[in-house]
Design a protein around this nucleic acid. Structure first.
Lengths: 224, 224
DNA sequence: GTCTATAATGAGATAGAC
DNA sequence: GTCTATCTCATTATAGAC
């Protein structure tokens, strides 16, 4: 490689990163359909055409944004679950610990991950609220389906007596709580007149874990 | 009024309803930003210009769609709460009954309300997932803010020892569960391989009520 | 690799004939 | 009240000079 072409390659890499960062920021704040490629390239300070040149279609760009951090995120979610299971007798872990493991990656990255990770997490929330039939979700599903399945298996072992429908319902409501909380659309700010802000994850997420653990207990206890 | 003008008025009323119905259907399935006025008028089988003629801007049309059923819906939510409180000693109602009252209108209309009400409820879910800074949400907030506030007051009386933050957090997670469930984006269908469908509200909503009642109990019990 | 210019499409809204 | 035709603007995507 010549000196000149090496410099071009470095510059290209920087441009790619600028576009990825801008795309992450824009998608995180307004969702896939709420953002135009123009929004992204203008925010990145690069000409419109470079987005298509480097990443192809809008969907492919979105997929690249997801995969940049998603691989690490999904692996950490799996690791946290494995640690909880390793410390439990006969794989029957305390359900609250499983719920905590499920939320921990998101929590840590929202609190300590820096702006990039915070945007990525908000982006996940937008995506989880989209219809599962949307094409642009394909890379996300591919990354996270195996992890989610292993969490369900773990909860199944902790609640062997629970019906399948009860178990999936409870897991679904755990997902709902996490997604809605992370989306932080502002629903509680006005109602509570400032006593609780929907962006106050440091307060919300530990309460979410206890709330959902209580929900699992209640559903596992049966009909009443 | 002449005979001819009376007939015109009736025809106009029919046209307005056709547009409102089509708008409700389109907004319910793809959200405010995912729908064009063209989508609506084509689905209604009327010329594009009539939407603007009868309803003004897209936002005003959306507001009319919400208000058509929202007034009745909000009033019923309030009524159900009032009934629970009237049957309780000293206004200290069983929290699970309050949670049930909170979800009952939605449940009934999803199961027995017919297609129109089902669409309206899905539309509410789309709206609850939108950022609270979106202008088009204004009529919704105006209608439902007072009802939500009265539910929080009722829960406060049932859990007088609970901290404000815990109470609002739990109420927020109840909202999250209901919104995400009603949105039915399909998140659980693939994971459960058909054992639970996200549109199976008859199974999901009663479990949601017990799950959230358990969550309230767990948060009210304190730190552990 | 970059950037200007533009094609092709679809959007919200309206003018004006009927 | 209705409908055709159109205005104006923003969108995705690409062609072609550098």
């Amino acid at each position: 490689m010549t000196h000149a072409s090496a410099k071009r390659a470095i510059r290209a890499h920087l441009t790619r990163d600028r576009i990825l960062d801008a795309a992450e920021e824009q998608f995180a704040s307004r969702g896939f359909h709420g953002v135009s490629i123009r929004d992204i390239t203008e925010s990145a300070g690069v000409p419109l055409a470079l987005a298509n040149y480097h990443f192809g279609t809008k969907q492919q760009l979105f997929g690249q944004v997801i995969e940049r951090r998603g691989k690490e995120h999904a692996a950490q979610m799996q690791k946290y679950l494995d640690e909880v299971l390793a410390a439990a007798p006969q794989d029957k872990a305390d359900p609250e610990r499983i719920v905590w493991a499920f939320c921990a990656s998101v929590y840590e990255r929202l609190i300590h991950g820096g702006r990039g990770w915070q945007r990525y997490i908000r982006l996940l929330a937008w995506s989880a609220e989209a219809s599962q039939h949307e094409d642009f979700l394909e890379p996300l599903n591919r990354l996270f389906d195996p992890v989610l399945a292993s969490y369900v298996r773990a909860l199944r072992k902790s609640y062997p007596q629970m019906s399948t429908v009860d178990l999936y319902s409870a897991f679904y409501l755990l997902q709902a709580s996490l997604v809605y909380t992370v989306a932080a659309t502002g629903g509680i700010d006005r109602l509570s007149r400032g006593a609780l802000r929907s962006t106050d994850f440091k307060r919300l997420l530990p309460r979410l874990v206890r709330f959902c653990a209580g929900g699992f207990e209640r559903l596992a206890r049966g009909e009443d």
